[in-house]
Design a protein around this nucleic acid. Sequence first.
DNA 1: ATACTAGTTGACCGTTCGGTAAAATGCAAG
DNA 2: CTTGCATTTTACCGAACGGTCAACTAGTAT
Lengths: 200, 200
Amino acid sequence: MNIATDTRSRIIAAAKPRFHSRSYANVGIQEICESAGVQKGSFYHFFPSKRDLVMAVIDEFADEWAHGFVAEAFDPALPPMERIDYLVDAAYFWQKSIKQVHGRMLGCIFGNLTLEVSTQDDILRAKLLAIFSRAKSRFKDTLEEAVAATTIAPLNSDLTAEAMLAYLEGVILLAKSQNDPEVIYRLGPAIKTLRVEAAA
Amino acid sequence: MNIATDTRSRIIAAAKPRFHSRSYANVGIQEICESAGVQKGSFYHFFPSKRDLVMAVIDEFADEWAHGFVAEAFDPALPPMERIDYLVDAAYFWQKSIKQVHGRMLGCIFGNLTLEVSTQDDILRAKLLAIFSRAKSRFKDTLEEAVAATTIAPLNSDLTAEAMLAYLEGVILLAKSQNDPEVIYRLGPAIKTLRVEAAA
DNA sequence: ATACTAGTTGACCGTTCGGTAAAATGCAAG
DNA sequence: CTTGCATTTTACCGAACGGTCAACTAGTAT
């Protein structure tokens, strides 16, 4: 059972950086198997298809973030609007460290996969959509807390949260197009200027 | 010469909707050739590689936009900030009409390609970066005109322009993840709330 | 008439793709 | 000792991948 778990996680561990740094279509099962030291037949014992693997990879990234930077950023002890700053900073430092190691800015794997596969695979699209929905909720809760604390003026927290998430993804996209995480540093803080007014 | 031009443009015409609706890696030369009614050898007479084809496709999309919606939106006759509204509206209506025909929201091909290939091909990345740079310039010029006309308070036009471009791409990304162009309609107008203050 | 060239054809290259199936292995419970 | 199950190995599938090549066609310029 332990060995089995190990094989499965070796596969995921081999797949993660590859899907992140290249693309879904550009990474083959064979390459992953070789890197993980696993035979292809063994791969298909644990994953019914390539799609199932990438879903597991998505889950791992999501968990990693949820228990890492996201947990730190959305710490209730922080003043609400500072949590948003923290999250943007975390994205910046993360991308920067990746570039230092890898030589390239890899961006957000959820955004990457969304634009690549969401017209071709509704199951993957739904999976990624769920990730974004959770992210949006964090922003929304934070905004509502900030409004309650009169840190910011009342607004449409749902749409503003979605706008902020969109902005973050867009900033990472532009940064990736320049292969330069400093773009996140320069543009990131403007996220707090975004506002959708409350419905009348 | 006319016939030759025709073959070349039939190839591009076949490739355009495919790259837009799927991905770079997922569209094969063979499929494009079949759809265009062209032999593969003939394809490689006009395009040295698949990359050269997609660059031609990028140019076509860029020209199409530049002479279409972008020209309309950035009409000097319009008040500057209304041009930005116009562009967001254009993106919305375009994606909406694509979805009506195609059943799916395809998003922005420049954003799509950027996230897919920019870690793997610096030449393509540079090509896409140039597209984004031009787009940013349009925003920047518009913002500066708006400041000059005292329509808006002075700001850092360069960074605000980049932020707006990022936001637009991010909104389209989220819309694609939901396969719903209405996301652009809801979130788009908030683009004008983005601000990066002028350097002290 | 001839030579050159742009364009086209169709067969072909080796490689990789995602996925399958059957046999072998190891281990644990009865 | 044996049955059963999870895991692994190995060989294989047909299809598609990007790209190449030599032969052929047709029109043009000399």
